Computed example of a mutant assay.
Amino acid sequence: MSGTCEPHHDASANALTAFMCIGITISYLPQHWRIISAKSSEGFSPWFLLLGSTSSASAMLNIIVVQWGLINCCQVLPFGSCVESIAGVLQLILVWVLFVLILVLYMVYYPPHLKYVELDVDLPNGLPPRHIKTPVKREGWKLSITLTWAVCVHIAVISFVTYMLLATNNPDEAYRTRQLRLWTMFLGVTSALLAAFQYIPQISHTWGIKLVGALSIPMMCIQTPGAVLMVLSIVLRPGTNWTTWISYAVAGVMQGVLLVMCIIFRGRQHALGLDDFGRPLAPPPSYPASQSIHIDAVPAVEDTARSSQRVLVDEAVGEDTPLLQTGAAKQNKGLFSWLKR
């Protein structure tokens, strides 16, 4: 192996890859911070996160396979030469980790008022309605849990198949078997197709709600033009082909479409006096503590606004309100408690 594992120095390619790794990390941080600071992931399509996670996972394993010989050379190369030779692999691993982190934050900060079915029960004698949060999951929350498990199963399956093929084949590209070459093409084409369809559900979802939600416009402003550099940095790496970079080219175009939509909708929301989640920018009017508020009498802009108004009703009802939501509240404890639901 030491005879074929000779370090190759390409200053321009290495500088571009290092710049891309820093840029990729910086571009994702606004999205991560936006979800955490808003404590809400409303506005995301779970299908978008599923397709994005599976697409980036396939692209990551594709470059691992095509550069497996270089990865094996790290056994004999110095640390610096090893990092330089597999910089392209590290770059796509970083993309996968940062995108999957969005999925994790999406589940952790999924809006509580959208998780379970809520009912308003009318009471006699002019009392305000009784608001009840049931333990029945909403369809959107059930779908998000199911698709998150699908992401976990997908990465486990393709990682296992990749490991088995690499363990039974020569890592040298010239002597790879037909099965390994077909698997490489399958990963690349699958990644490209998933990336092509990735933004369709998110574009459709954003168009339907006419809101930006938790989507980060700064992230898209960085990543959309950055897709060109991303493709270029992969093309310059040795051993890669069109199946490795095509997914990022397609995703860059689709993300540009979503970016234009979000900019238009943000301007529309601010013109209407609403924030990115459809809530009024002006504070809601205050009511006397003794005044009864009927939830149906307050105009609701979005479900989030209705939820905040219902809190006032819960406080007005008093201690006789059934606490059916206790079981659901207990399930919210723990960072990854949604995996058990």
Rank of each mutant, 00 (worst) to 15 (best):
A297E: 15
G239T: 04
I200L: 10
P111N: 08
G88C: 07
I263W: 05
E315S: 13
P201Q: 01
F197E: 01
S307I: 09
R178V: 11
G327L: 08
T4R: 15
G80F: 15
A150S: 11
L324E: 02
T146H: 10
I64P: 05
L180S: 03
L272Q: 13
A251C: 05
S40H: 01
T190D: 09
V250M: 09
R237Y: 09
I246P: 01
H8K: 12
Q202S: 11
H154I: 01
F79N: 07
F277G: 11
W245N: 07
S55W: 06
S247D: 01
A167D: 13
P135H: 10
P112K: 04
T134E: 06
G188Y: 01
V104N: 07
V212A: 00
Y175A: 12
V76D: 14
N14Q: 09
S41N: 03
P288F: 09
T134P: 05
F186Y: 11
D275A: 03
L94N: 07
V161S: 06
G140P: 02
V231W: 00
S40A: 10
I26Q: 13
K210G: 00
Q331G: 12
P288Q: 00
G273T: 07
L103Y: 04
A328P: 05
W245Y: 11
A13N: 08
A57F: 02
K142G: 11
V117C: 10
Q309T: 12
Q325L: 08
A196E: 04
L61S: 10
L324C: 09
A13Y: 09
H131V: 09
A196K: 00
A57Y: 04
Y199V: 12
K137F: 11
L77W: 06
N241T: 02
L312W: 06
C152R: 10
V189E: 05
A300S: 10
S233K: 04
M1R: 15
L127H: 08
L101A: 13
V89R: 01
P30G: 06
H9M: 03
V161P: 05
K115N: 12
F336H: 04
V157L: 12
L232A: 11
L258W: 08
A300K: 11
M185C: 13
S233F: 01
S144P: 00
R181K: 13
R341Y: 13
K333T: 13
F79H: 09
T243Y: 12
L98D: 07
T4D: 13
R266T: 08
G23H: 02
E139L: 13
Y28V: 02
N14D: 15
R178E: 15
A282C: 09
D276L: 10
V97I: 12
L194S: 05
G52N: 04
W33P: 00
P285E: 09
S159H: 05
P46F: 02
V257A: 06
S292F: 00
P201H: 01
S37R: 15
Q269L: 14
Q31S: 11
G239V: 02
Q198Y: 11
I200K: 08
K210C: 05
S292K: 12
V313E: 03
F197M: 03
I132D: 08
L70R: 12
W68S: 03
H205K: 02
D120T: 11
L98H: 07
